[in-house]
């Protein structure tokens, strides 16, 4: 796979059943047939003392398929982080239901890993201890959890940094640890809340490629929140554009390009322009 090669024609494809050209036939079948996460009529209203209720999300309906990489894109205030927190089970919806494999989500954990914007690493733990944290809390033996954690540390390219504390790592490395930590319990779903939002541009591009590489190795259903359309276009199978007042899904796009994608190819830029024009 040579970089910078775009194997599919560009353009907006709003048909959710669009076939992804580059993926092998059998894999596509998996991703087509089974719905992993289904969001049904989810609304969220925040109650503020001495003020009117604030509707943050209204009637959100989406289905996310198994091993799909989906992005939620929108300006600040469109409720994308709230939606992600609802998927994670950190925040209960005011109405509506989120199902994973048909089971209603009632709380965090339980096969849902999460990566936060501000890495959220435990500053008093070293890289390997951070990665092993979830396994430790599950009561796994030290040798086992260290082995799992070390594999992940290697996967995210931090071999040699396992005994460093978070403050001794660069922003990009911290996010790598956060990704490894989220993967440690081998969740089926990975929820990412603007994970590269605080990084500088160069590191950000690098981390996007890294994430795709890791995703190729450890296939997960990924829900990725970002405010960068470019980022969403580089990473995702599908993009949900969200709007404000009240927050909700406005439009949905399938990205037809195979990976890796070249950010400055004509087709890529055309699609970028088309999406903006459609807003």
């Amino acid at each position: 796979m040579s970089k910078g090669l775009v194997r599919a024609k560009g353009g907006i494809v709003e048909n959710i059943d669009h076939k992804l050209n580059s993926k092998p036939e059998n894999m596509q079948k998996v991703s087509h047939n089974s719905v992993k996460i289904s969001v049904e009529n989810v609304s969220k209203i925040y109650q503020v003392a001495d003020a009117e209720d604030v509707p943050v999300l209204k009637d959100v309906n989406i289905d996310i398929r198994n091993n799909e990489f989906v992005s939620l894109v929108g300006r600040s205030g469109c409720g994308k982080t709230t939606l992600l927190n609802i998927l994670a089970g950190l925040v209960p919806p005011s109405s509506g239901i989120v199902r994973i494999d048909g089971t209603t989500v009632t709380g965090p954990g339980d096969g849902k890993g999460m990566v936060f914007q501000q890495h959220a690493l435990f500053p008093w733990l070293t890289t390997i201890e951070n990665v092993a944290f979830g396994c430790k809390s599950k009561g796994m033996r030290k040798a086992d959890r260290t082995e799992i954690a070390m594999d992940l540390v290697k996967l995210v390219g931090l071999d040699g940094y396992q005994n460093h504390y978070p403050r001794e790592l660069s922003g990009g490395m911290q996010q790598r640890v956060a990704i490894a930590r989220a993967l440690a319990l081998d969740p089926e779903i990975l929820l990412m809340d603007e994970p590269f939002g605080a990084l500088d541009e160069m590191t950000r591009l690098e981390m996007q490629d890294e994430l795709l590489r890791i995703w190729e190795v450890r296939k997960k259903t990924v829900v990725f929140v970002t405010h960068s359309l470019t980022e969403a276009l580089v990473l995702s199978d599908r993009i949900f554009l969200m709007g404000r007042n009240p927050g909700g899904i406005r439009r949905e796009f399938s990205v037809p390009f195979s990976r890796p994608r070249h950010r400055s190819s004509v087709e890529f830029l055309e699609m970028y322009e088309d999406i903006w024009a459609g807003l």
Binding site: L90, A120, F133
Partner: peptide
């Protein structure tokens, strides 16, 4: 204590006392 640390622990399946002792206490040291 940074609430995001508490949420991170929750996403790894920790609850109640365990979050207090394994996350909140060390974070406030």
């Amino acid at each position: 204590v940074d609430p995001v640390l508490l949420r991170a622990a929750q996403t790894m399946g920790l609850k109640g006392w365990r979050i207090l002792f394994q996350v909140a206490l060390p974070a406030s040291l």
